[in-house]
Design a protein around this nucleic acid. Structure first.
Length: 829
RNA sequence: GCCGGAGUGGCGGAAUUGGCAGACGCACCGGACUUAAAAUCCGGCGAACCGCGAGGCUCGUACCGGUUCGACCCCGGUCUCCGGCACCA
């Protein structure tokens, strides 16, 4: 063993064992102290951690250890998002029960966490597949059901033919399955939904309260919720007694309507065409559409297709009769499933009108001579002045929206309306390894929830995993056959399980009271710990997980359970870990395994590098050289500490006077500067990279001191290395514990108080300022500390440097900036 | 297409938010130690030009322009890259 290097393997194993034995990371239940709830997004137990996890948890761990040192009562738990498809696939492919596979993975990953030195309170560990956990997921579902927020509906749903299950809209990415990429089709299925749309407005409004969230994430959620303001209007249909209701965000353009479009699935379509000459062609069109929707939808944009259905609608504004079409570009599940088409002022309608030779009537004048209203080349969608709009002519289009809406309301032909893009959340999954939906179907009583005292509804074990056909739960008779909780007659259990996003929508609440067997969590504990003060995870969860978690929290708040309406006070979205400019992946062969790095350099090095290489929210480019640099740095610390401590062990910090030598003051200034900067960078800015560079500068100052100081001041040195160990300990806890012990401390380093700094030691009596001429630095001047502007200007004038700097040019003015510089403005020649 | 974000040395990145651009690290170069190498310690390191030299001088934060005594930072425009949404009426 090279004596200039520390034995990281021995050191890390030693301290991990000690921490474990001492139960050091347990969270005391001390409600009088100021709390800090720090949480990293819990992982899916795939089997091993990847570098993204290491980054995520290193950020969290440094913060947790720092806050603990700052005196907070810190809750820092970890758990497992343990339901999901890979476990089931393992069962199908290797014949391992999903539960066994999952448990094995969890213990492997827990071991990795420990080897990274992560200070988690494992006493609060939860796995969403624990019956004691999913019991409460089921309980929450029943509360939703009781309040009419969970319902079953037959609907065409997104179906992944490869995963054999339905997908939420959110899980369809560019027309393909989020998980496997297979083209998603449509199927008519009876499915459970959660009525998240009831919360759309609040989910939107409360984003404004989340000052500690990245604006990017808030914007993504805003767009996802997609609030649109406008109006609904009734068009009558000639020879038909029902009105056709449409939604529009542009009521101002009502006079420009030249045709109407219904979604092909609109219920009127059948009524309007049955028995007419159009019946056959319409049926044909629908069949074709079904086929189209089943093939690759991800390829860019689909050509707009439509069909006249032989009927005419009457414009409520001006009585104009316009033809009614059906077309693939109108969706049944947004608005009313029908639109008024204004080709002059809507890009989609314009395309369609051009293709089918339909009229284009401009009603908004852009006031731009370059735009020829009679021969529009594209739709004009911006604001302008109304034309061709009867009494509204000359009005600005913005006021016109209001005016038209008012007229619709006065005449009873419409009203103002708001629509959201957000749809209700489809939560049924035709899978085994998930939380069973605790519902029972009784022929007499309909859908009835399981009695709460009977929860959890356990996953049965007598199932077969074939990977074909329906959910494995269909193979368990004992599971399906039950009795109705209301009438006691034989009844059947729901065999679908829940989307795993439900499991992860409330786990942060369970951590506050993880093993409460009588209740979801105690009100007292939740009140103390909630909300999560800092949540840390990848941006990929910016929409789904974070939106669902907010929704659940609001619901639990409404029923008097959650003490807060928002779960996460502050959010940090960390960037990806890249290698050679690309995301690490097996197919690219650029994966760096955490185990390998820990084995070669130790956990302290891995943590240090990953935090030093880049600020947390940015992408991080993996660099083997950089890792070596971090390793070298730790060894450099080790050497100076062991060397200097030989001379200072056992010395009291209060001992002796210190010399006033310049090198003394310089080292002491470096120490104070580092304490201040590291605290600020960790605690306020989350800039771990600059915190580490501040520690490096401090170490460099120590080396410089050793180089220059003829007679090292032992008190000074001891204070410096003590504080150095404290500052570095959140980043590299193992080596720091070892050095702490080595330098004669007998108490644990974990949780030791963060050092104080002395502001006055940061000041030197003189400060060097820059002398600029016309903004360019031309010289320097030492002046006394704390000089105001006038004093600074006088000092420059008295210095006798002006003539030399200006070279005889006329001085226009002098701008002194205290503590920084003086700019002398001269006339250029 | 719409909405966001970002462009700083050979590389990762700093810059107290309008005040000395390039902290810290990587890579590279030089010196010390060594029989030698590695390791370590010390020093150098944006570019062009002038000077034997100490040093001087100009340019430089994607590009063009503006505001200002002073701009990586603010404003207008352009380009490139990344991310989100994508027929949402």
């Amino acid at each position: 063993m090279d004596s200039s290097k520390y034995d990281f393997k021995a050191v890390e194993e030693k301290w991990q064992a000690r921490w474990r034995e001492a139960g050091l990371f347990r969270t005391p239940e001390d409600f009088d102290r100021e709390k800090y709830y720090l949480l990293e997004m819990f992982p899916y137990p795939s089997g091993k951690l990847h570098m993204g996890h290491v980054r995520n948890y290193s950020i969290g761990d440094v913060t947790a250890r720092f806050l603990k040192m700052k005196g907070y009562n810190v809750l820092h738990p970890m758990g497992w998002d343990a339901f999901g498809l890979p476990a089931e696939n393992a069962a199908i492919q290797h014949g391992i029960h999903p539960n066994v596979w999952t448990r094995d993975n969890i213990s492997a990953m827990r071991g990795q966490c420990e080897r990274l030195g992560l200070a988690y309170d494992w006493d609060r560990e939860v796995a969403t597949c624990d019956p004691e956990y999913y019991r409460w997921t089921q309980w929450i579902f029943i509360q939703f059901f009781k309040r009419g927020l969970a319902y079953k509906k037959k609907n065409p749903v997104n179906w992944c033919p490869s995963c054999n299950t339905v997908l939420a809209n959110e899980q369809v990415v560019e027309g393909g399955c989020e998980r496997c990429g297979t083209a998603v089709g449509k199927r008519d299925l009876d499915q459970w939904y959660l009525k998240i749309t009831d919360y759309a407005q609040r989910l939107l409004d409360d984003l404004d309260k989340l000052g500690g969230w990245p604006s990017k994430v808030k914007l993504m959620q805003r767009n996802w919720i997609g609030r649109s303001e406008g109006a609904e209007a009734d068009f009558s249909i000639k020879g038909f007694d029902k009105k056709l209701r449409i939604f529009t965000t542009r009521p101002d353009t009502l006079f420009g309507v030249t045709y109407m479009v219904l979604a092909p699935e609109h219920p009127y379509v059948k009524e309007l065409t049955d028995g007419t000459e159009y019946e056959a062609t319409v049926a044909d069109f629908l069949r074709k559409l079904q086929y189209v929707s089943d093939i690759d939808r991800s390829s860019a944009e689909i050509e707009k297709e439509g069909l006249f259905i032989g009927r005419y609608a009457v414009n409520p504004m001006n009585g104009r009769e316009v033809p009614i079409y059906i077309a693939n570009y109108v969706l049944m599940d947004y608005g009313t499933g029908a639109i008024m088409a204004v080709p002059a002022h809507d890009a989609r309608d314009f395309d369609f009108a051009v293709k089918y030779g339909l009229g284009i009537i401009p009603v908004v004048d852009p006031g731009d001579p370059d735009i020829d209203l009679d021969h529009l080349r594209e739709a004009f969608v911006a604001e302008g002045t109304m034309i061709n709009s009867g009494e509204f002519d000359g009005m600005g289009s913005r006021e016109c929206k209001e005016a038209v809406t008012r007229r619709l309301e006065d005449e009873g032909t419409g009203e103002r309306a708001v629509n959201f893009r957000l749809r209700d959340w489809l939560i049924s999954r035709q899978r085994y390894w998930g939380t069973p939906i605790p519902m029972i179907h009784c022929d007499a009583c309909g859908w009835v929830p399981e009695k709460e005292e009977n929860l959890p509804v356990l996953l049965p074990t007598d199932v077969e995993f074939t990977g074909k056909g329906e959910s494995p739960l269909t193979t368990s008779k004992s599971f399906q056959e039950t009795v109705c909780p209301i009438c006691g007659e034989p009844a059947k259990r729901e065999i679908d399980t829940m989307d795993t996003f439900l499991d992860s929508s409330w786990y942060f609440l369970r951590f506050t009271d993880a093993h409460n067997s009588g209740d979801i969590f105690s009100a007292e504990r939740a009140k103390y710990w909630m909300a999560v003060d800092q949540y840390i995870g990848g941006v990929e969860h910016a929409i789904l997980h974070l939106l669902y978690a907010r929704f659940f929290t609001k619901f639990l708040y409404d029923i008097g359970r959650s003490p807060t309406g928002e779960p996460f006070e502050n959010l940090l979205t960390q960037g990806m870990v890249l290698k050679d400019g690309a995301k690490m992946s097996k197919s690219l062969g650029n994966v760096v395994s955490p185990d390998e790095i820990i084995g070669r350099y130790g956990a302290d090095t891995a943590r240090l590098f990953i935090l030093f290489a880049s600020p947390p929210e940015k992408e991080l480019e993996w660099s083997d050289r950089g890792v070596e640099g971090s390793y070298r740095f730790l060894n450099r610390v080790w050497r100076i500490v062991t060397e200097l401590s030989n001379e200072t062990v056992g010395l009291s910090l209060d001992a002796g006077a210190t010399t006033g030598a310049p090198e003394y003051r310089e080292l002491d200034r470096a120490r104070n500067r580092a304490i201040k900067k590291v605290a600020r960078d960790i605690g306020e800015r989350f800039n771990f990279n600059t915190a580490i560079s501040a520690i490096m500068e401090f170490v460099n100052a120590l080396y410089r001191y050793r180089e220059v100081a003829r007679e090292p001041d032992v008190t000074l040195v001891r204070r410096a290395i003590t504080d150095l160990i404290l500052l570095l300990s959140p980043f590299a806890p193992h080596i720091c514990e070892e050095m702490w012990e080595l330098t004669g401390h007998d108490s644990a380093l974990y949780g030791a108080p963060w050092p104080e700094y002395d502001e006055s030691a940061l000041m030197s009596s003189e400060v060097e300022i820059a002398l600029q001429v016309n903004g360019r630095v031309k010289g320097r001047l030492s002046v006394v500390q704390g000089l105001n502007a006038a004093g600074l200007e006088a000092a420059v004038r008295d210095s006798g440097l002006l003539d030399q700097l200006t070279a005889g040019r006329e001085i226009v003015k002098i701008i002194p900036v205290p503590g920084r510089l003086v700019n002398i403005v001269v006339k250029e020649r």
